[in-house]
Simulated scan of single mutants.
Amino acid sequence: MQLPLPQSNKSIALCSLAVSVVALGLKYAAYALSGSVALYSDAVETIINVVSAIGGLWALSVAARPADHNHTYGHYKAEYLSAVAEGSLVLVTAFVIGREAVEGLLHPHPVSASYLGILLNAAATVVNLIWGLTLVHAGRARRSPALQAGGQHVLSDVWTGVGLVAGLLLIPLTGWMWLDAALAGLIALNVLRVGWEMMRESIAGLMDEAPAPETLDDIRDIIATNGRGAIEAHDIRTRIVGAVTFLEFHLVVPGSMTVEEAHEICDRIEAGLRSKMGDTLVHIHVEPDNMAKHEGIVFWPRPATESASR
């Protein structure tokens, strides 16, 4: 299940902040009713969700700014900075929760497994599930690292919530007081995993890591489909920064082709890329036929001028 979303990423971030505050209220109430260290750990993690939502709102606001004389390629990487900061906060949260778990294992105390508290935590879990799926879907559709990171973080809470509800229901049945602290320890490990994945993906974006092979294949297909009249395209390099694709390559054309004809081919390729890839900044270096490397994308059928010379 997914919720209908506002048009702007900034509005989505505001909704995310509101959802995080609601989930925090539910989880803190659940902890207050039970005194459970596991529910306390879950509430602490949700505080980080609120802080992360504020950071995501800032990052999306900065990323939406147009290019200026100090940032001629735009401000898109602000989203990656936000995701790295969020991942760092998640890692810190994992260690805080882990410390509470160790303390609970060393000094276990009775837990009032209030069914109302468990119900409140379950309600927060359902809220997180719906909103987390919505954020991840929106982040992928809009190619927004900040929204995807926020969605993954929220979804990590879902598995935590499911485990907590199941575990806390077992405590009164088994009498295992240590189970509360053990659940907190599992939460810490899950939070640690999510934080590491968020930081790894965001740092890869900051380092201009090449996109997935499937994306590169799509780009090559678009160039090949729209490059009729050219001889070949080589030295293709691309990187994706948030919602924008940066692409550059060399386009070899017949030496007898006019500048206007070569420009028309470039326009056709750029239009094809933007129609399939969305916001794309393309730099094409046009070269004469004697610069051909006989690699990359070789267009077929070849231009008539080349066929006649053979």
Rank of each mutant, 00 (worst) to 15 (best):
W131L: 11
A101W: 00
V44Q: 05
A85K: 02
A64P: 00
F299K: 03
F249T: 05
A184E: 14
R193Q: 07
L170P: 02
L155K: 00
L106A: 07
G205K: 00
S41N: 09
A292M: 14
H109G: 08
T160G: 10
L89Y: 06
T125C: 06
L14W: 15
N9V: 04
I12P: 11
S11K: 13
V191W: 00
A304V: 15
A113I: 12
R220D: 13
I297Q: 01
R193N: 05
S256V: 11
I265Y: 06
A78G: 09
L57F: 15
S41T: 07
E248M: 12
M199Q: 08
D208F: 04
P145M: 04
L247Q: 06
L57M: 09
D235G: 03
A292D: 14
R193T: 08
R65L: 12
A23T: 13
V44W: 03
F246I: 02
G150A: 15
L216K: 05
A149M: 06
H107W: 11
A113S: 15
I297T: 02
S202Q: 06
L105E: 09
S114G: 08
Y28T: 12
L14E: 13
L26C: 11
L164A: 13
A149P: 05
L155I: 08
P108W: 10
S20P: 03
S11T: 10
L14T: 12
T305V: 13
L179I: 13
H107A: 09
R193Y: 14
S61M: 03
V22C: 06
L133R: 07
E100M: 11
V102W: 09
A78H: 04
D180N: 09
R99W: 12
T225W: 07
P288I: 04
T215C: 02
S88C: 13
E103G: 03
L216G: 00
L119F: 12
E100W: 10
A271Y: 10
W196K: 10
A243G: 08
S307P: 00
A123K: 01
G185A: 12
T258Y: 04
M277Y: 06
R310M: 12
A83K: 01
L189M: 08
G25T: 09
A64I: 11
V282W: 01
V51I: 12
W131F: 15
D180Q: 11
G296S: 01
V244H: 10
D217T: 15
S52C: 04
T280K: 02
G185R: 07
E232G: 02
L120W: 04
M177S: 15
D235A: 05
L147G: 04
M207A: 04
S20W: 12
V259I: 10
T125N: 03
S52T: 13
G229R: 07
V96A: 12
P213D: 07
V286R: 01
P254C: 04
V50L: 09
L14P: 01
A204R: 04
G175D: 14
R140T: 02
K293E: 15
A38V: 09
H107P: 00
E270H: 05
L81R: 02
L89N: 05
I219E: 01
V51F: 14
L179P: 01
M198Y: 00
V62M: 10
D235E: 11
V244M: 06
L14V: 10
I171W: 06
H69C: 01
A181T: 10
